[in-house]
């Protein structure tokens, strides 16, 4: 059983990332279960997709505390938040270094911790942490919104899951068309490469 949590803020495209992962895993012959919410949570709230991949059984939609094998964070604060609850020292973390500020921080009523320190804290908790400038890589690929595919590429390239990168490539091929497909393809490959370097 491989438990993956994709976390970020509503509107960042994490639901799509978890769906691409699930479709690729099924193509690779695995059984999957995803627990997520959308609706109100899309509006600037914390969002979290629980993706559970198994060779042989269907499981419930939610991952128990401390049992995430891989955490993919679309922004630093949410990554640390999820890790505190669902992580263990063996959790592999992939994190976008670009913060997304909660409204309380913009209003000056709360303080967003220094992003560098958040990354340091993550590294204190787990032994493997890949930090990626996913939003910047996405912009290079053609759109800041493609950060989700950069991170999907990193997830595929990290070599933790029993799903070969080509299943992801086929899924992207199938799901998208036109310019969006081109941008997503470039974004995926840049994430795939970046995680192997870092």
């Amino acid at each position: 059983m491989f438990n993956v949590i994709v976390t970020g803020v509503g509107g960042q495209g994490n639901v799509l990332a978890s769906q691409v992962l699930a479709a690729a895993a099924v193509e690779a012959g695995c059984r999957v279960s995803i627990g997520e919410t959308f609706g109100a949570s899309q509006r600037g709230g914390s969002v979290m997709s629980h993706v559970r991949i198994s060779r042989d059984r269907t499981c419930g939609p939610l991952i128990p505390r401390g049992k995430a094998r891989l955490v993919v964070g679309f922004e630093p604060l949410e990554t640390l938040r999820v890790l505190m609850e669902y992580g263990s020292e063996d959790t592999v973390v992939i994190v976008n270094n670009r913060p997304n500020y909660p409204i309380g921080c913009l209003l000056g009523e709360d303080k967003y911790p220094d992003p560098q320190r958040i990354i340091e804290a993550v590294k204190k908790l787990v032994s493997t942490c890949h930090v990626l400038p996913a939003t910047d890589l996405a912009m290079e690929a053609g759109s800041p919104m493609a950060a989700n595919m950069v991170l999907t590429g990193a997830l595929a390239g990290a070599g933790v899951l029993p799903v070969d990168g080509n299943y992801f490539r086929d899924t992207i091929e199938m799901l998208f068309s036109g310019e969006v497909k081109e941008i997503n393809r470039r974004a995926f490959e840049s994430g795939f490469k970046a995680v192997q370097k870092g």
């Binding site: 949570s41 509006r43 709230g45 604060l77 640390l80 505190m84 020292e89 320190r117 993550v122």
Partner: peptide
């Protein structure tokens, strides 16, 4: 998770919540 206390010390603050926003 081990070291949660140390991780909290590093960020020097509690983790701010994320209220829904338009």
């Amino acid at each position: 998770i081990p070291n949660a206390g140390e991780a909290r010390d590093i960020i020097e603050h509690s983790l701010p919540g994320r209220e829904l926003a338009l």
